[in-house]
Amino acid sequence: MTDQKQAADFNEDEKKIIEDMITGDPEDMTIFGVSRRQFLKQLAVITGGFAAAQYIGPDELFAAPSVLAPGTIPINSIENGVNASFNVNGAPVALEVDSRMTLLDSLREKLQLTGTKKGCDHGQCGACTVIIDGNRVLSCLTLTACCQGKNVTTIEGLAKNNQLHPMQTAFIKHDGFQCGYCTPGQICSAVALMDEAKKGEASYLTENIREKPVSVQLSDDEIRERMSGNICRCGAYPNIIAAIKEVHSGKEAAQNWQFA
């Protein structure tokens, strides 16, 4: 990141956020991925403190991680209740839900993990993409009941060890979003794509499909094809491609605006 700012001193808002944070008892690993305190520090470093200053209170940045165990969630006349225990961002979760409840709605309505977005609820947009057991999937077409024993990673769980995931950093640098609504899905999708490319998985555009799968360096069109399951109505696609290319190739990707 060339225009990365120096770590700024905390302003009053940030200090207040931090105070609120550490009066609690921040566990190191929560379903939110990293400790709140570490995350906050990182937040100041990565974007020079910009974001910490944005329209957020502590509640919004890290909605209270109600530690979730069966019975502690308010259950409103559940019909056909199903129990499901699984991991979300490394933390165990046990839910009793209506059999109809999708993973997407469980994340958003029960676990307050609202980073995963609902764009269509029918598998047509990719906004709800999460990673289950290493694979990118759509949480809107996944029943919570089917998540028994699985490992779910959401956008909240990508940052690790005080660092944003490189894909998150690249999205910031390349402005890989505008409204930000498709972004969590795009990033989860892109993170999983890096793995697929390493495993040499093919796409419809792969010319030599019969060859043995080996780690592949994807062309721009290959990345486009493989990211086509994530719709961005704001039209950040070229920037998304730049961000993914940079992470995929390890080389800086250029941005192409100019003044006349």
């Binding site: 990719g126 694979n135 999937v137 759509l138 999708s189 419809y204 493989r226 399951g229």
Partner: peptide, 12 residues
């Protein structure tokens, strides 16, 4: 198969 739907859907 790869021409159908999206990577996410094909994973499911």
């Amino acid at each position: 198969i790869l021409s159908g739907a999206s990577a996410q859907i094909r994973n499911m």
